[in-house]
Amino acid sequence: MATRLTRRQFLELAAAAGASVTVLSAGRPALATTSASGHAVLIDVARCIGCRSCEAACKAYHKFPAGEAADLSPTAWTYVRTQNLRTPRPHLNLGADGAARRTIKTQCMHCASPACASACPVGALRKTPEGPVTYDAGRCIGCRYCMVACPFQMPRFEWRKPLPVITKCNMCAERLRRGDGPACVAACPMQALQFGTRPAMLAEAARRIAGDRRYVPAIYGAEEVGGTSFLYVSDVPFEELGFPVASREPLPAFTWRVLGKLPGVVVTLGAMLTAFEAIARRRNEQLAREKEQTR
């Protein structure tokens, strides 16, 4: 469930987030851009007109064959999904013409605590401090546990290749390192995509919601699975747009609760088995001796 706040809380949040960004950038300018939460992209579903320029820019930048995609794939790291609405609502930019549906840019959410990265047995998937969750094909063994683990079903697999790899959006990590934003953001003609530090994007999201009553008072990705680096605001409730209802707790915590106990289990079990073996052996020896005596 997307975080629900009142409009007043949003205004406060916007002010606080804006203030903290200012303080950070004033005090430690280098850290402000690569802080723990790194960068984020804000996607405004209300503004999106479904022109698919972002999709084309992604394909051009990553040198994939051009053309519109119907789903994510090894050669479509982002695509624009169309969701028909149960109750039509006038579109922010298209008015009555766009009332029947919304178009939603879809890609890896770049979670703050990615389930895929915690699932990967060889550390091929990593959360970088800049924000992107990156994939190292040279490590990957192809077990596909990342695909199982992902709550958003974003990783794709090369099912038709003899020796396949996993594919997903890398948030243009190499562009980010140069100080640029992702290729898709620059291509959006409607300013439905915006790139910046995550606190700044959260503040911008809050500002838009506070400034226009048509927006749903929720930021998808602010707290879902512990927060993501792709954030969404919308004028249609996220459940109606088909966004998965995600817990607020980061998913790696669910498995770590068990994994973290294992060293203790190993030591305890080892000690218990060794002790038990010694007791059982002595009991057997005693029984054998008794048998000999009675004979």
Partner: peptide
């Protein structure tokens, strides 16, 4: 996907992974 790398977990560690 890449069975010839089945030994990778021996040298490429991720203790957070089940």
């Amino acid at each position: 996907g890449r069975p010839y790398r089945i030994w990778h977990p021996l040298v490429m560690w991720n203790p957070h992974s089940v």
